[in-house]
Design a binder for these strands. Structure first.
Lengths: 249, 249
DNA sequence: GACTGTGAATACATTCACAGCG
DNA sequence: CGCTGTGAATGTATTCACAGTC
């Protein structure tokens, strides 16, 4: 994305300066970061089998990337594999969890209580992954006060206090496109540092704020592109997702 | 994708063979494809102002990419810009629409009538973008027969006939992770060629089938990574999305 | 003069292939 | 011997910078 996909920004994760633990902080490339969740998920699957040791080959198979890619990515985390053996599953899981910042539970605010916003605030996939939806806000007075699961829809006018008091740093923007920029501005003002943008709109935010686009209409258009140009396949290979297209999966 | 994202497959759009119009079919790189929807959206904004001509500079500004990038991307479509002037807005819109395959209306099936699936089947962002949700299926007998907006939830057992009769080629997979692979298999069997996968699962599909991951839990984990490692910003630049991260936006 | 189109330069990402080590 | 870690090689994407042209 692929991006993405996607395309525009220069990340810059980790610094290069020496750190507390004495090791030099490696800069982890964006492409690697975007694969960590895949490895994490693959390792959870392996761990469920009570397997204690795993090879790059096996992880690669589960995550649908090449074994060399896995080794290179993991080595960037300072890797603790054992030559001739593989990686210790529990150790590697801890390492990735900690890199991804999954040792703390992140509180998340959902903005926009339309169908999508309401669905996301109850989405099981989050709860199981160390994220907690702590607020659902909207601007519609008719919705405010209503319950959605365990949440009560609050007013977007209270954004500042909600974000500050609940120490929220991540937001999910699920408003219609026309309201997206305005809402993004308010989120930034309230101190939110990351926005996952589901609205079909391109957001302007100041440096230091992170936007990740998760725009389903765009994704469909990309699928449409490949459908339209018979997306062949060639690549007789092991089908690692279909001679496919996506920068991701 | 960012994201977009991401990683495993080799695309292969357009062929290299000479085509009906005499020009040699250019292979459009995946990165370019993923930006076409952005340009499309930017052009729609420009067109709304009744502007008839637009520069790469202006498109770049709206789409949050560099002007050189815009020119290179557009030139791959065989571009019809005029030096010293810019691009004709209506002409360029037509060109991109047609490249993206948006001249036909694609019929889409949503699998999984949980909160997310139901929300997506009513999502306004699709209707306005040349996609039509023509079916919503689930395996739960209690849901089947129920209405969601104008749709009636149908049984996944009728997948084959639904897909065939309505000529559906694109699907949105919105089931829980544990059912995702099984559902993907059935979709492929029924003849669906593109899957937008919202489930937090890595799918195995045969070559020729396209999967695009739109997995919100993964996206949140990526945001979490950058939050965890103070995502700095450097890049004093024009804020093209916040010293951000995403491969996309 | 203004703006596109594009080679050449650079940066980034993936793959190869093998040395190093348990 | 098996499997990691990693330089070197390749491939892909982005940016630069300018010649071409309306």
């Amino acid at each position: 994305m692929p991006e993405p996909s996607y395309s525009s920004e220069r990340p810059e994760a980790s610094t290069d300066a020496p750190r507390a633990d004495g090791r030099v902080g490696r800069r982890i490339p964006e492409a690697t970061v975007s694969r960590l969740p895949l490895y994490y998920r693959s390792l959870l699957a392996v761990a469920a089998d009570r397997t204690t040791t795993v090879s790059s080959e096996r992880i690669a198979e589960l995550a649908h990337v090449s074994a060399a890619q896995v080794r290179k990515d993991l080595s960037r985390l300072g890797s603790y594999g054992t030559r001739g053996v593989g990686y210790e599953v529990p150790q590697l899981l801890r390492l990735i969890r900690s890199e991804l910042g999954l040792n703390e539970t992140w509180r998340v605010i959902v903005v926009g209580a339309g169908n999508l916003g309401r669905a996301l605030s109850q989405y099981e996939g989050f709860r199981s992954n160390d994220f907690e939806i702590s607020a659902l806000v909207d601007s519609d007075p008719l919705k405010i006060g209503t319950n959605v699961g365990k949440l009560t829809i609050e007013s977007i006018d209270d954004l500042d206090s909600i974000v500050a008091e609940r120490d929220i740093r991540i937001s999910i923007l699920a408003t219609p496109a026309h309201a997206a920029q305005q809402v993004a501005d308010r989120l930034v003002e309230a101190g939110v540092l990351s926005i996952m943008n589901l609205a079909p709109a391109i957001l302007d935010v100041p440096a230091g704020v992170l936007v990740r686009k998760a725009d389903l209409a765009t994704e469909l258009q990309i699928l449409s592109f490949y459908q339209h140009h018979g997306q062949v396949d060639l690549d007789t290979s092991d089908t690692v997702n279909g001679g496919g297209v996506p920068a991701d999966q």
